[in-house]
Amino acid sequence: MLDEELERLFRLYHGPLVRYLTRRLGDRDWAEEVAQEVFLRALRQDSLVSERSWLFAVATNMVRDEARRSERQRRHLQVLAEQERETMVEPGPTNAERAHEVALAREALQSLAEKDRLALLMREEGLNYEEIAAALELSVGSVGTTLARARRRLAETWESLQAGEGRRTAGGSDNG
């Protein structure tokens, strides 16, 4: 692959791919590492027919396999990464709120079935239905249904989590 081709590929897809992986993994550094691996593999290909779906499919498979292989380590990694963040982040009132928002969003995202979650994350990065179908080995016709289900579930779970938090807060205030 030529330098120009590499630049083009990188410029077009690096950002979306890292964001996709960050949302999936919850760890930016890890996401960037995986993205590097994906691009390296892309460089080894003579040509890519559907480059965006190829990149996202490879990234998805890499993460899935690594997660399967070392689920225990991954959990440990997340804990350590959180700890590391805590030591680096300046304390402030907004950090707690942000962390809470992120935690709610992550929990809501985790409540989705794997295929639904991936389809939604890919769609958010601009992949069209054909690309999502190719990357996840779905039929194009089922992507709309998959996305509809994913979005509904995400929003409803997020709302119920939010409502639960509200009730807890209110209960805490009442008790206090």
């Binding site: 949302r23 969003a105 958010e124 994913a150």
Partner: peptide, 8 residues
């Protein structure tokens, strides 16, 4: 959905 995900 976009909004929730963007908070990540």
């Amino acid at each position: 959905s976009s909004r929730i995900l963007s908070s990540l």
